[in-house]
Amino acid sequence: MQRQEAGHSAVIPLRHRTLSGVLLAAHLLLVGWLTLRPLDVPWTPAANLTPLEGIRAALAAGPLEAVRQIGEGVALLAPLGVLLPLISGRVELSPLAAWSSLARTAAAGALVSVGIGMLQTAVPGRVVDIDSLLLNTAGVVLAHVAVVPALRARKRRSQVLSQGATPRITRVGLGPWTDVLSAVQREY
């Protein structure tokens, strides 16, 4: 059963939202395992707190290394850009609400990335990198912009098709009681 909300004529079914929540939890567990397990390295570089310094270094290392490092940073949290809006379940949004959804999703992605960075300070072999925060947030935004509007449009189209055309009711003449009611009103 789909609930009706003010300003929203339809929402994503609960089973899809639940599946999105399960996928989100599984993805966050995988991200935690990838980013928070200790590394056995002989030395660790200093923390990168200067924005875009690590990206410049990756670009200087060559195009393949740049694509690998930047791609890893963008792809790490990109699924959040799709899964978080699916959990909210809204299908039809005004343009202002769509921008608000993008802003909330980007903020959530940035907060998850900051949380990972803060937790990495306690893990041996891991260091904080401000560029990972920037790339992770950019990945969340890019995934949201690339996928969510198309998913919402597809869902709206499928709901319109499943509902069918608006039913037409033929006009009916006056009911048999109208003569009685009009006679009663004339008496008063």
Score class of each variant (00 low, 15 high):
9 S>H: 15
10 A>M: 09
12 I>D: 02
14 L>W: 12
15 R>Y: 14
16 H>D: 11
17 R>W: 06
17 R>T: 01
19 L>T: 02
20 S>W: 09
23 L>H: 03
24 L>I: 00
27 H>R: 01
36 L>H: 10
36 L>W: 14
44 T>C: 03
45 P>T: 13
46 A>G: 11
47 A>I: 03
50 T>H: 14
54 G>V: 01
60 A>T: 01
64 L>I: 08
67 V>Q: 04
67 V>I: 08
70 I>A: 02
72 E>F: 09
78 A>G: 06
81 G>T: 03
81 G>E: 03
82 V>H: 15
83 L>F: 12
84 L>C: 06
91 V>H: 11
92 E>W: 06
92 E>Y: 05
95 P>M: 05
95 P>R: 05
99 W>E: 01
100 S>D: 07
102 L>E: 06
108 A>Y: 13
109 G>D: 05
115 G>K: 06
116 I>Y: 08
117 G>W: 13
119 L>W: 10
123 V>E: 07
127 V>N: 04
130 I>Q: 00
135 L>V: 06
136 N>V: 06
139 G>S: 12
139 G>T: 02
140 V>Y: 15
140 V>Q: 07
147 V>G: 09
147 V>I: 15
151 L>A: 04
151 L>W: 13
152 R>C: 07
152 R>G: 08
153 A>Q: 04
154 R>H: 10
158 S>T: 12
160 V>N: 05
161 L>P: 06
162 S>H: 14
166 T>S: 12
167 P>L: 09
167 P>C: 06
170 T>C: 04
175 G>C: 05
177 W>S: 08
177 W>K: 00
178 T>N: 13
179 D>Y: 07
